[in-house]
């Protein structure tokens, strides 16, 4: 069964990425610490005024996740490149999209865990009142990070194997993420302030559409990117 083989490969990649990541905890810890540090710096930039902090909380949070997350994406391929493991990975017969799907899932879990830490710290630092519609807020966080991680994982497949990977990945990735960032920031901001205008729903629809497009397109294009 072809799909069984594919699913086995996806699972193997997820297990491998998370196991190696889990055993060298330094990676996750430093990325999460960076996320928190960025939040603190935003706090300094926005001043001690409580209302200003609350207004800017969602923006600061998403930017912290973006800046810290971008380090995770290159790391994901660094594991392969370090001991020449990418070559054997490419030599296994079968569809290459499974590699992308596995890395996408593993990176989503990685960024998701970091997001939990950053959000909890952000709620405290920015004195955020948790709204009644918090399940919706969780959905926004999940949808936003899927879009972020999918394109991040895709572009890192190229950037990590080019010269100047540190600058190339953000240069390619950040402009592409403008819609997902705008939608996620606006939706979380609306939800945090009670969603008086009922605009969060529209933004969440946009997030869903963005996620569908930018999970499917990289899945289809990954083969062309990884083979060369």
């Amino acid at each position: 069964m072809a799909w069984k083989d594919d699913w086995r490969r996806v699972r193997a990649i997820v297990w491998k990425d998370l196991t190696t990541e889990g055993r060298s905890k330094a990676g996750f810890n430093s990325v999460a610490a960076l996320g928190v540090t960025i939040l603190v710096l935003f706090g300094f930039a926005l001043g001690p005024d409580t209302q200003a902090l609350r207004d800017a909380a969602s923006g600061a949070l998403w930017l912290a996740v973006l800046f810290a997350g971008v380090l995770a994406f290159n790391r994901s391929y660094q594991v392969e490149l370090e001991s020449g493991a990418l070559e054997p990975l490419l030599l296994y017969p079968g569809a290459r999209w499974t590699i992308f799907a596995g890395k996408l899932l593993a990176n989503t879990i990685f960024v998701g865990l970091m997001l939990v830490i950053v959000v909890l710290v952000g709620i405290v630092l920015f004195q955020v009142n948790i709204p009644d519609a918090w399940p919706k807020l969780v959905a926004v966080l999940a949808l936003g990070s899927i879009g972020l991680v999918s394109l991040g994982t895709f572009y890192a497949a190229m950037a990590s194997r080019s010269r100047a990977r540190e600058v190339l990945l953000p240069l390619l990735l950040f402009p592409m993420l403008v819609p997902v960032l705008l939608a996620a920031m606006s939706a979380s901001k609306a939800l945090l302030s009670g969603d008086m205008m009922h605009e969060a729903g529209a933004w969440m629809n946009m997030l869903v559409a963005y996620d569908v497009i930018f999970v499917v397109a990289p899945l289809l294009a990954f083969e062309h990117v990884i083979e060369v």
Binding site: T20, S24, S83, E87, P88, L91
Partner: peptide, 18 residues
């Protein structure tokens, strides 16, 4: 082709933390 070949490269291509 990949179903027929076994390739052994210079680098071991193993995961150090596994």
């Amino acid at each position: 082709v990949r179903r027929h070949i076994g390739f052994l490269a210079h680098s071991p291509g193993l995961y150090d933390d596994l």
